[in-house]
Simulated scan of single mutants.
Amino acid sequence: MVFQRAINPIRRRLDRAGIALSAACALHCLLSIVLVSGLGLGGEFFFSPDFHRIGLAIATLIAGVAIGWGALRHRMAAPFVIAMVGLTFMGGALAVEHGPKEAILTIIGVALVSLGHILNLRHMHR
């Protein structure tokens, strides 16, 4: 029981980091479209496939640890399933050309991943 109390703050931080990274990702998508299409700035950085692959890897790692850990602990599959569907959307965004389709898939994905983290945090308190 003492071990579990020590672990909860770590999982809580990971879930909060996942929510913050999801918001940053959505903001990145929107700013990329505005800056690149509206002003012609930063296309090589904002649209870099490596940037998106690294972001997906980080999101997968954090969601897998925090939400997977939570699902095992509280035996609720919904946060895990929702987050994994979100990661699937984010992965699908890597398969389309840069632009509105990619942004829509990514924003749907990060919203679902964030929702998975939020649900995971809620189940932690039950």
Rank of each mutant, 00 (worst) to 15 (best):
F3N: 08
R5V: 00
R5L: 00
A6G: 08
I7M: 11
N8A: 08
P9H: 13
P9Q: 07
R12G: 01
D15P: 01
A17W: 09
I19E: 03
A20G: 06
A26I: 09
L27Y: 11
H28V: 02
C29R: 03
L31P: 00
L35M: 13
G38I: 01
L39Y: 03
L41I: 03
L41W: 08
G42E: 00
E44C: 01
F45D: 08
S48M: 02
F51M: 12
H52N: 01
I54M: 15
L56I: 11
A57T: 07
I58P: 00
T60S: 11
L61Q: 04
I62Y: 00
A66W: 06
A66K: 06
G68P: 01
G70F: 05
A71E: 06
A71Y: 10
L72S: 06
H74A: 04
R75E: 15
A83F: 09
M84I: 15
G86S: 12
A93M: 05
L94A: 06
A95G: 05
H98I: 08
G99C: 11
I104Y: 03
I108C: 06
A111G: 05
L112M: 08
S114N: 02
S114A: 15
H117V: 04
H117A: 11
L119Q: 10
L119S: 10
R122K: 12
H123A: 09
H125Y: 15
